[in-house]
Each structure stands twice: as structure tokens, then as C-alpha cells.
């Protein structure tokens, strides 16, 4: 079953209350942040806190991600040394601009895993792309390491690099989002969208989630528990979609049994991409728990 990564909630790395309770809100992943949400003077304290929390707290199956500081900062190497040992599911590398950034992080993680007797490849990587150069290199980044399971667009830094600002309709991100998606799909990894910063603009948030789902993103970073439910709702297939997908898959199964070549359902031809989409809908419906894989839905 393909893992759901619809929502990845930011948890500031130096906030014990949120570190303790983050998983109760039901996001698919939690991202403990050692980077931008932590002041320079507290980098060591946040690192100790996230390290100890990951080693102790049971996050009950919620995927754990740690956003470390880049290896070009004075904090990056210590972050890797501590966090790999604490064994989160994923380390998120910020401000990735070129494949060499991933290769360097991959090598360092492998060294630490070997040193502490962990199987090499245990801790996965994801890369945030947040600059014009990163977007141009997106595909080379996406295929830089088998450890890399996702790339994400970080819009705030990106729009600043592009000498513009974020707007409601996200026109300034069209090219970059598309490029990240193309790169992720071509490399066979997940594509994750950026945060929506105004937690009080529910309508704007919902519009953006619909937009990025339609583009093809697997999910979105969120910054507040109240942003989780709308994303999950929008990413959940409707009963109508599920029913149609079951019928498509039944029709294809029957055709295969009978050895028929061309298959039609309700007067429309069913071909490979339609079957693939139907499979994906069913997979998502099962993963979200609204369908159990049987003939009928509730």
C-alpha cells in the first residue's frame, strides 16, 4: 500500500508542548523543525529536545520527519549526527539547490548509520527546493539518491528569490510547482506542496488545496492542526469516484477472464490510464479507511 503523505505538520523544534502533542491531531506526518523556527542561540537546545523526544515518545504510527539545518551552516553536521541516531523516518534537507547537496547528505547519513550499527538506508531523505536554481535542477535533485523519497517546494524563500511575493491565486508559483511535480513523477517519488501561511483564511486555504491536488501533488505542509481536516477531506475520494473505480476494475477483470481485447463501460472505452487511475482511487480509499476493498461501500 502506498503511504499517505497528505499532510505534514510543522512542529517548532524547541517547543516541548507541541512536540508532546503534535500527533494527536491526525496529520499523516509530523515535521520537527530545527531550522527556521529555531533561533540561532537555541539550535543546541532544540536538537537535544527533538533527539530525546524521538527516542522516547511513541508517535503511534505517525511518520516522523526532522527538518535539519543545511550542511553549509554551522549546525547542519551536529543535527545529522544527533538526528540519525534518534532514527526518525525521514530527514528533510532545506534549501536544496543541486544534486550534490543530496549526495553529501546521503553519504553523511550512511556514515552515521554504519558507525552506530544501523542498516544503511534506514533513515530516508526528502528535499525542500526553495530557489530558482533548485527548481531548474529539480529532476537531477529528485534522482540523486535512492534514499530520497520526496521533494517539496518551499514557497516563501522561492518567491523572495524570484523577487516577488505570494498571491492568493499562486500565479507566481505555477512554473515552480509544475517543475517540482514533473521532476518527482519522472523520478518516481512523492511531490509535496508548500505551506499556506494565513491560518485564518480558510477559503483561501481550501482553494489552494484543491488547486495543488488537481495539479497532482501528494500532499501539503501544514502549520496548524485546523489545516489538517480540510486537506484530508479534499484528498478523500467521493463515493461516486469509488463506485466508478470498482466498476472499471470489475470490467477489466471480466474482460481479462474472457480474453476480450477492447473493453467498454457505459459506452466508453476503458484503456490503461483509466484502469491505473481507478486503481489509485481504490488505493487511496482503502488507505483513508473509507473503503475496505470489498464489492460495496458504506
Amino acid at each position: 500500500m502506498r503511504k499517505l503523505r497528505r499532510t505534514m505538520m510543522y512542529i517548532p523544534g524547541n517547543n516541548p508542548g507541541m512536540i508532546r502533542e503534535g500527533h494527536i491531531y491526525g496529520s499523516d506526518s509530523l515535521m520537527f523543525d530545527l531550522e527556521d523556527s529555531v533561533s540561532l542561540k537555541e539550535k543546541d537546545a532544540a536538537r537535544f529536545l527533538v533527539y530525546n523526544a524521538l527516542k522516547t515518545i511513541d508517535y503511534e504510527g505517525t511518520e516522523t520527519v526532522v527538518r535539519v539545518n543545511g550542511l553549509d551552516t554551522p549546525f547542519g553536521r551536529d543535527d545529522f549526527e544527533a538526528i540519525v541516531r534518534a532514527k526518525p523516518d525521514i530527514i528533510r534537507l532545506p534549501k536544496t539547490e543541486k544534486p550534490e547537496d543530496i549526495i553529501e547528505a546521503d553519504k553523511l547519513i550512511s556514515e552515521i548509520e554504519t558507525k552506530v550499527g544501523m542498516e544503511v538506508g534506514t533513515v530516508k531523505l526528502m528535499a525542500a527546493i526553495e530557489s530558482a536554481l533548485g527548481i531548474i535542477n529539480a529532476y537531477d535533485i529528485a534522482k540523486a539518491s535512492p534514499r530520497l523519497i520526496a521533494i517539496a517546494i518551499g514557497a516563501e524563500d522561492f518567491v523572495t528569490d524570484m523577487k516577488t511575493t505570494r498571491s492568493k491565486d499562486g500565479v507566481e508559483l505555477m512554473m515552480a510547482r509544475s517543475q517540482v511535480l514533473l521532476a518527482a513523477r519522472a523520478a518516481g517519488i512523492y511531490a509535496l506542496d508548500t505551506v499556506f501561511s494565513d491560518i485564518n483564511d480558510e477559503e483561501g486555504f481550501i482553494n489552494e488545496v484543491k488547486h495543488i491536488k488537481q495539479l497532482g501533488f501528494d500532499g501539503k505542509s501544514v502549520i496548524h492542526p485546523k489545516q489538517i481536516e480540510p486537506v484530508h477531506r479534499i484528498y478523500t475520494p467521493s463515493n461516486k469516484e469509488i463506485e466508478k473505480s470498482i466498476r472499471v476494475l470489475n470490467a477489466i477483470e471480466e474482460a481479462e477472464r474472457n480474453g476480450s481485447g477492447v473493453i467498454a463501460l457505459d459506452g466508453k472505452m476503458i484503456d490503461g490510464p483509466i484502469v491505473e487511475r481507478a486503481r489509485r482511487v481504490i488505493e487511496l480509499a482503502i488507505a483513508t479507511g473509507i473503503y475496505n476493498g470489498g464489492e460495496k461501500i458504506d
Binding site: P16, I19, R20, D44, A45, F48, L49, Y51, N52, A53, K55, T56, I57
Partner: peptide
Amino acid sequence: GALDCVIRARVQA
């Protein structure tokens, strides 16, 4: 009201 892991982290830092 800190958890043990928080106490440990703060003492280490």
C-alpha cells in the same frame, strides 16, 4: 510539567 525526555534534553543543553 515536563516529560522525562524534556527534562533530559534541557539538562543536557
